[in-house]
Computed example of a mutant assay.
Amino acid sequence: MQGGLLLPPECAPGGHSVLQNPYRSTTFSSSWLQQSSLQDFICDHSLTPGWYQFQIFDKPASMPTQCVEVNHCGTQAPVWLSLGEGESLPGPLEVRQLTACAAWQFFSSSSKECCMFRIPVTVRNCGDFYVYLLQPTQGCMGYCMSDTLPTSSLLCGPGEVNVGGSCKSEDPTPSVPVVVSEVTGNTVYLKCSFESRSNSSLGYVVAWSRLSPEGRKEELKQETTIQTFAFIELDGFNLRLGDKIYCSSSSFFLDSPSVRGISVESQEFFAGIRLRPEASSVSEDGRLYEMVVESTVPLPCPEGSPASAEQCTLSLQLSTTNDLFFWSICSC
């Protein structure tokens, strides 16, 4: 059992044998063995058919997928895994039928044949390592191994995804964004802010939109950022008082931009002045009625005007019709 998943029998302990002769490494030149009487060439013509895992100094290794030079891997004819057009190694817990090739160079020629002999090989991805269903070679050939594992071999736990060889949260979706207003000098901005739910390095795509008079959302602006917030100016042209505004955010892994979370949208933000309650009937019964005038955005004084209470205020006008009170508001 690994990452909450049931492993195939050949991945479990006892389900495969281990080939861990370090001379099988692609970096090892067999010429040293030719000069030594202590070690013979590796020959897999007598290998017992079965599932095998490669290890180099007790660490998982894999069969190389590029042509190997002759007289390497402790043998004269190194065997490597050939991936044809459209072929790839299996993903986590997948199994795939592939072909291995033996490299050879004829003594009478300086040219090298990367695939002099072909050998069928079944490959199983066990998550943290590969296992290979091997059979004896046709002569004195040796299966090669590389000390690096392809990043696709990593099996991540529930809710995680393999990104560049590391397990990361499968869903980098940020929290629901919130829109608030801020003022800098005489300029009013709206700020879209959210929280990250991942410990990974993320980038964010933030989009602003508003509701048209016909009830359709019109996109105003989109930007990419590494911050968990973004701004848009309430400039009176593209974005005005009285607009109903939304922002949305989606995130992606910086080292793998193709892995993106879903887009999350904020609640509606009304940019302007509103009355609470929006409508009310007031009777001439001597009772006290309270209404709240609320501005969702700051209203800065015009640049250069005196910042006195008389010069920079909101005026409210009260009118009545058929014993109903209505408020009209203007900015001065």
Results as ranks from 00 to 15, higher is better:
Glu87Gln: 13
Ile56Gly: 03
Phe237Gly: 04
Ile226Glu: 09
Glu94Met: 01
Cys73Trp: 02
Asp147Thr: 15
Cys192Glu: 07
Pro298Ser: 11
Asn125Gly: 10
Phe28Thr: 08
Trp80Ser: 01
Asn199Ser: 15
Pro136Phe: 04
Tyr204Gly: 01
Lys168Tyr: 11
Thr187Ala: 06
Cys11Met: 04
Asn21Pro: 07
Thr224Lys: 13
Leu190Asp: 00
Ser31Trp: 13
Glu310Ser: 12
Glu94Gln: 03
Val163Met: 09
Val178Gly: 06
Ser82Val: 12
Gln222Asn: 03
Tyr143Trp: 09
Gly91Tyr: 11
Phe325Ala: 02
Pro78Tyr: 11
Asp235Trp: 03
Pro8Lys: 02
Arg96Cys: 01
Gln2Ala: 04
Glu290Val: 08
Ser108Gly: 04
Ser328Trp: 06
Ser212Pro: 09
Ser31Met: 14
Gly272Ala: 12
Gly236Asp: 08
Ile56Lys: 02
Pro49Cys: 06
Phe229Cys: 11
Cys144Ile: 05
Gly15Leu: 12
Ser328Arg: 13
Ser250Glu: 13
Gln222Thr: 12
His16Leu: 00
Asn71Leu: 09
Ser200Val: 00
Cys11Val: 04
Asp44Trp: 00
Leu38Asp: 14
Pro213Val: 02
Ser152Thr: 14
Ser193Met: 02
Phe252His: 03
Ser308Asn: 08
Cys144Pro: 01
Glu10Gln: 12
Leu254Phe: 04
Glu87Pro: 10
Val293Gly: 05
Ser263Lys: 11
Val264Gln: 08
Asp44Asn: 04
Pro8Ile: 04
Leu6Arg: 15
Ser62Met: 14
Ser295Cys: 11
Ser109Gln: 13
Cys140Thr: 11
Pro22Lys: 06
Leu211Arg: 07
